[in-house]
Design a protein around this nucleic acid. Sequence first.
DNA 1: GGCTATTCTAGAACAGTTCTAAACTATTGA
DNA 2: TCAATAGTTTAGAACTGTTCTAGAATAGCC
Lengths: 144, 144
Amino acid sequence: MTKDGWMMRPYASALDRLRSVGLRPTRQRLALAKLLFEAGHRHVTAEDLHKEAREADVGVSLATIYNTLHQFTEAGLLREVVVDSGRCYFDTNNSEHHHFFFQDGGRLIDIPAHGIRVENLPEPPGGTEVSRVEVIVRVAPTRK
Amino acid sequence: MTKDGWMMRPYASALDRLRSVGLRPTRQRLALAKLLFEAGHRHVTAEDLHKEAREADVGVSLATIYNTLHQFTEAGLLREVVVDSGRCYFDTNNSEHHHFFFQDGGRLIDIPAHGIRVENLPEPPGGTEVSRVEVIVRVAPTRK
DNA sequence: GGCTATTCTAGAACAGTTCTAAACTATTGA
DNA sequence: TCAATAGTTTAGAACTGTTCTAGAATAGCC
């Protein structure tokens, strides 16, 4: 009942990813990177990831989940998406894009950048510069 | 040092507003409506409003602030704006528009709807309909 | 191996929000 | 006018998601 079921270099790309941003590849960070990045683009909350880690028999404390998510975000591996006060989503897709957000259920879906065109943006207020333009399309079940 | 400094019908429009959405005009709701709507467009958090109420010598509990903000939102008098996980803003401008958000300090500024054009929006996922399109332009102090 | 800086952890602390049950108040209608 | 009653307010407890803390564990280096 241990870590030996895993193949020889299961963390290869996770390892590279960590190295590339200068984060020491610890057991926990490797496991989380693997969960986060080896399954296509994802939107996870800290709790989601914690649960997944537990299910994958990876011992990681919640505090470490938070630390890691923030370190990854700071390093540019993740992007924080705010759509819901009181819950924080992290997006493994760090290329330019936007989101559909399901009001109920709280699910997020990517909209590729070319799927939306924002035009005619006014100048940012004096002394500031734009750090990101975020479009959130809130959707709800069709009522009829 | 009391409520007698106020002119004869200080709540006239607040009253109308409450009546128009079918909310019983209580002392607290009238006072909050006055604070919210008689000073141009505003973005407030529950705490902000609570503080203002205290400063205006209006006795209102925090629970009532929350109740009222939600009732007003439900009634369409306010709009909830999510830009920051763990803090909730309410916007007294319920016409179509978007926002600049100052990352530091957490200040919000309206961008009139005609100041931004969102085009080329993809269809919402099956079974859902768009309930709102929100554009948040995050800005930070120019660093040089 | 041993040393040191970094990382991890459990649990406490914290912030913002919601809940609860009891007290209060506006409205109705006799 | 005065109850009756349905809606509202309140203090404080509870809850949720997140951050902090201080000690234990670990990675990287000699």
